[in-house]
């Protein structure tokens, strides 16, 4: 079979650290009484949910409650703060060393991205060379 030739975009570590996490605009966030963020994510209607919706009440949103650290990260996904700056802020606020902050935050952002809560904005001309 012929290959399409379309490569998956790959990011170097430096590009990833320069990327800016951006919230998904379809997600609605509200602060609970405990001061943490609760995110309502619209459920993508599958055939089954469409059928189920006719028979019973199926929620259109699923709710995800973040913990205190998740709330901190979510509040800093403001479209301006890049991952590198976010790591520094996280380490300062929660007294982590830089390496632990970097590894854990990148994993956490990956989890948020996999759940379609955030995306990573990378500037096309911002690619660094020589790293």
């Amino acid at each position: 079979m012929a290959k399409t030739g379309k490569k998956k975009p790959s990011l170097s570590k430096w590009d990833a650290l320069d990327a800016v996490p951006v919230k998904n605009r379809l997600c609605q966030a509200k602060t609970t009484e405990e001061g943490v963020i609760q995110i309502s994510v619209p459920v993508r209607p599958s055939l089954w949910t469409k059928v189920a919706r006719r028979l019973t009440r199926v929620p259109e949103y699923k709710k995800i409650e973040l913990d205190e650290i998740g709330t901190f990260v979510w509040n800093h996904c403001d479209g301006r703060t890049n991952v590198r700056a976010l790591i520094k802020k996280l380490c300062k606020r929660f007294k982590l060393n830089y390496r632990e902050g970097e590894v854990s935050l990148t994993q956490y952002l990956r989890t948020l991205a996999r759940r379609n809560l955030i995306g990573l904005a990378v500037s096309a001309d911002g690619r660094r060379k020589g790293h």
Binding site: I69, G70, V73, L90, F94, L96, E100, G101, V103, S104, L105, Q107, Y108
Partner: peptide
């Protein structure tokens, strides 16, 4: 040494 690592999770702060 007889136990096996089942999972290691590294999350912000934990």
């Amino acid at each position: 040494e007889t136990v096996e690592l089942d999972q290691a999770l590294i999350y912000p702060g934990s």
